[in-house]
Design a protein around this nucleic acid. Structure first.
Lengths: 143, 143
DNA sequence: GTATCTGCAAAACATTTGCAATTCT
DNA sequence: AGAATTGCAAATGTTTTGCAGATAC
């Protein structure tokens, strides 16, 4: 866990330029506690039990603002659902097609991709890089 | 290009267990010629000009059946759209945030991930592995 | 008091499905 | 003929948006 208490979450959000509303604090707390890469709907369904007035739109909008601020990252590991990860450090994700669990794995070196000796049976690899291509970089459109 | 003519595409589809309907042949031909990782909508919009009767549902369903047969692969590089790639060999994809182009890159070794000396500026890395985790493998539920 | 944020409902999309008509073998 | 495929329209599911009311600074 990244945060010790709600006050830490509030200060964190303030530092990121976001008002620490009750809903935002609870969503971020949820992501800090449940590091299972949940979907927006899973977050909503879980939070609505303790925060009955929360709406789905707020969950979606909040998650988007967290992504924009670099607080969390979106995972597109499955085509029909977005998942969210409070760990924004580069690391790989392994989804088991039997139990459905998504594991975090180190990305240090090539060996980790092949997962020699770890018992993970890799059937499919997707590597998506984003940034600026050599042509656009040379055109100096950006820095 | 993988195919020399339409006859080759037809035979290929037959070998994969799919009837070589005109629509399927044209969709596969399009993916073979336009290796730009198009979306279903881009394929539809382009094909409907020469095949006016083609429907979007057919494009979607055909792409799905191609994926199931292992003829093409789905890319979830962007959250709001599925893209398709006729190259099913494992390789990385680099999307430029300026021009939007998606490049194919080799995945051989770690160096390619960091793209030293290639001029690609990597700002974000997503590595998604799918398969069977050690727990499910040990339970012997599958082989 | 003014900005920002929330909840609701509706809208916007992409994708899937049911089914009758068509096409292939 | 019989099986598979298509096109249409409707359904589905996820995410976004408009706006009035509520909340925070």
């Amino acid at each position: 866990m990244m945060f010790k208490n709600l006050e830490e979450i509030k200060n964190f959000l303030r530092r990121k330029g976001l008002q620490p509303s009750f809903q935002r604090v609870k969503i971020l707390e949820f992501l800090d506690i449940h590091r299972t890469h949940p979907t927006a709907d899973e977050i909503f369904k879980s939070l609505v039990r303790t925060v009955p007035t929360i709406s789905k739109a707020t969950v979606y909008n909040t998650l988007r603002s967290f992504v924009e601020k670099g607080i969390i990252q979106e995972l597109t590991i499955e085509e029909n659902e977005l998942r969210y990860d409070i760990n924004t450090q580069p690391h790989a994700h392994f989804k088991c097609r039997v139990c459905g669990k998504i594991y975090d794995l180190p990305l240090e070196d090539c060996e980790s991709l092949l997962l020699k000796g770890t018992g993970f049976r890799v059937e499919k690899i997707d590597v998506y890089l984003k940034g600026i291509c050599p042509i656009c970089a040379k055109k100096g459109k950006i820095n």
